[in-house]
Design a protein around this nucleic acid. Structure first.
Lengths: 211, 211
DNA sequence: TGTAAAGTGTTGCAAATGCAACACTTTGTT
DNA sequence: AACAAAGTGTTGCATTTGCAACACTTTACA
């Protein structure tokens, strides 16, 4: 369930958590999970629930950096959470396990066989996160909304590698507009043009790509 | 020198490289270093020289994903290099060491003390890369060129934490425009407006921030 | 040292985009 | 079932931006 602990047995996991000095906390909805946390290097695991990481910049404007669901991992390894201005708010009642980064390479853990699995999981998570960031950057650097949309659809098509030209929208258009950093209404207009120009066809939550 | 091998002695390094089955290749200028490489999971270290990773999308348009210098690390762990459309071109004569990702967790290496240092270095590199990506995303999601510039300058100010309101531009404006994904001439215009509006003052390669 | 290449600053113009406002639909909660 | 909240589609308008073209400066290198 928790990506960081994949392929580690229940028994080993108990031991691992003990060695890592992992501590679990429960949070109500709409709470900043970082308020009582030492923001130095740590990893946080979402055992249940979900959170939203929000950045407030020097001018006071806010952006959602990340939406995180059960099983996912966040913390100072994956985002600039040490920074002032970043807060992580629970979207519902949420349980989070905190691990200090230094514990990840302590002497005791190193002696256990499951350590190598744990490290592999960690590297895999970091790698996947890098890939998601790279893809978003690729999309954000497109000059026009049209290019952003066409590239995004292509990316979804590629990701669901079933050879089909039809993709299914899993996000709302509001979310997509935020992800691509374009105005929602301007994006809706561009989608209309894409339909008119024959690039795409929309049937409910499905989009057929003609390009 | 090589970030991945920091804090590992010369002697240990020789052993480590052997265990990792690291192989070093020399490349001339303007050569695609991935042409003869199995693009499956690998890590590549730039021993000397520099490269540029370029992505050509489905429509044929090209974007520079990354500029990499001596000592830096790239590969399938840090970018979507397995993808078609990505090529890494040497900007000068360059030496690169390749390591297969699977070797990083092989049995033999696990037995050595320096392994933990190696793993720490690797995680640190991945983490730093994630941070650079996060920052760029933060800047790219700003709606206007003005916001992108103001946030970028603030970021540089923060990074060079000497408390001074004066920052030094290390990149060319052309590069900065690409980084922020705005038209160079439009950016130059906006910088002019920022000066006129009293936000910044430019003296040679230095910029004084008044906000 | 001379020449090519890369970078900079400027501007008019057309196109793309954000913003605001609105009506309407869907979803979620009590 | 009833209501609130979130999401969607649309449009006019002002603003921002990209593009193209140009002259000029700086840098690289043979």
């Amino acid at each position: 369930m928790i990506k960081l602990f994949e392929n580690i047995s229940e028994k080993e996991l108990l031991k691992l958590k003990k060695i890592l000095k992992a501590s679990t906390q429960k949070f109500k909805r709409n709470v900043n999970v970082l308020s009582n946390v030492n923001r130095e290097d740590f990893i946080a695991l979402i055992d249940s629930g979900s959170i939203e990481c929000i950045y407030t910049d020097y001018a006071g404007s806010k952006t959602v950096i990340e939406e995180l669901e059960t099983g996912e991992v966040f913390g100072s390894l994956t985002s600039s959470i040490q920074e002032e201005g970043i807060s992580c708010i629970t979207k519902e009642d949420t349980e989070i396990t905190f691990i200090e980064y230094n514990q990840i390479t302590n002497d005791e853990i190193f002696k256990n066989d499951f350590y190598i699995i744990f490290i592999k999981n960690l590297i895999k998570i970091l790698t996947e996160q890098l890939n998601t960031r790279n893809i978003r950057i690729e999309l954000l650097t497109k000059k026009t909304t049209r290019d952003k949309l066409l590239s995004y659809f292509k990316y979804i098509e590629k990701k669901t590698k079933d050879g089909s030209k039809t993709i299914k929208m899993n996000t709302s258009y509001t979310e997509l507009a935020n992800y691509l950093s374009v105005d929602r209404s301007a994006m809706a207009r561009e989608i209309k043009y894409l339909k008119e120009d024959g690039f795409i066809e929309i049937i409910g939550k499905k989009i057929i790509l003609h390009y």
